[in-house]
């Protein structure tokens, strides 16, 4: 798979009253086509700044960002608060706004807008005023905005933070669907269980990349829970992982590394059947 985004020793710093304050420190990173990446870190560690760098919204103080020419203009970002990014009054109008900005031929606008809305299940809601959408539906609309522009890389900046569990599930289903279609996804979250949906984890701490590896290594690289990168870096593992560690210690599980609750359920069920 070809490399889409390459960050080379990137630093971003702001001048404040107390001098220069770095938000991202000497960060190097490669993102390949079709990758499913979760980005985690505590409040204020620079997650959003990194997302803004990758989507070209924040200039870099030092270092370089290389964007593969094949995806120029095709990196889209979905923010936490949909009310601060939806511009149209109706669902359809909002999808068109992005297409207009990229000078899409007016002839092609309807088909591209409606196709994107179909992909997220909002086709029948095209003429609905945005104010009548639920929080989850607004986020789906923002995903449609990105899809309409043929986004190859989609960055999600804590989009499920304000949603109820059911809407959260619907959005994650949609993201899995996007990954199956070959899209590249960078998913920023505070909810560590969601990491289980992705193949690669990046952890940030005070602007530094402190972990880059698989979720299995992040949560299970050591059989003592306190020695895993997750605990060492000060993260609280999700309940599913805590339980899995206990079951591994008791010998109930042997080689499974479940992170999602559904995976854990399956692992326990398998034990039942083997009896």
């Amino acid at each position: 798979m070809q490399e889409l985004l390459v960050l080379h020793h990137v630093t971003v710093a702001y001048t404040t009253m107390d001098g220069i304050k770095p938000v991202i420190r000497d960060l190097s990173l490669k993102i390949k086509e079709g990758e499913a990446i979760a980005l985690i870190g505590q409040n204020g560690c620079g997650k959003s700044t990194l997302a803004h760098i990758l989507s070209g919204l924040t200039p870099i103080s030092r270092g370089t960002l290389k964007i593969n020419p094949s995806i120029q203009n095709n990196i889209q970002i979905v923010f936490q608060n949909p009310d601060a990014q939806i511009i149209g009054d109706t669902v359809y109008e909002d999808v068109c706004f992005g297409l207009e900005n990229y000078c899409v031929d007016p002839k092609d606008i309807p088909i591209r807008a409606l196709r994107a809305l179909s992909a997220v299940g909002l086709r029948s809601a095209a003429n609905r005023p945005v104010e009548f959408l639920s929080g989850g539906q607004k986020q789906l609309l923002c995903i449609a905005d990105a899809l309409a522009l043929d986004a190859q890389v989609i960055i999600f900046d804590e989009v499920t933070a304000m949603l109820d569990p059911l809407s959260r599930k619907a959005i994650l289903q949609m993201v899995n669907h996007l990954l199956n279609r070959g899209k590249t996804v960078l998913w920023i979250t505070q909810l560590l269980e969601e990491v289980g949906h992705f193949a690669r984890v990046l952890a940030l701490q005070s602007g530094e990349l402190v972990f880059d590896g698989t979720p299995e290594d992040f949560f299970f690289s050591d059989h003592i829970p306190e020695n895993t990168p997750c605990s060492k870096l000060g993260f609280v593992p999700p309940f599913s992982v805590q339980l899995a560690h206990q079951l591994l210690q008791l010998g109930v599980l042997s080689d499974e590394r479940p992170i999602l609750m559904t995976a854990l359920k399956d692992a326990v069920e398998k034990q039942c059947q083997s009896i």
């Binding site: 923010f79 900005n101 000078c103 606008i109």
Partner: peptide
């Protein structure tokens, strides 16, 4: 920021209309 992210980067840029 969201307007910029969605491609509305400067006043007077070339746009189409639906």
């Amino acid at each position: 920021i969201a307007m910029e992210a969605r491609g509305y980067r400067k006043i007077g840029q070339l746009r189409t209309t639906h």
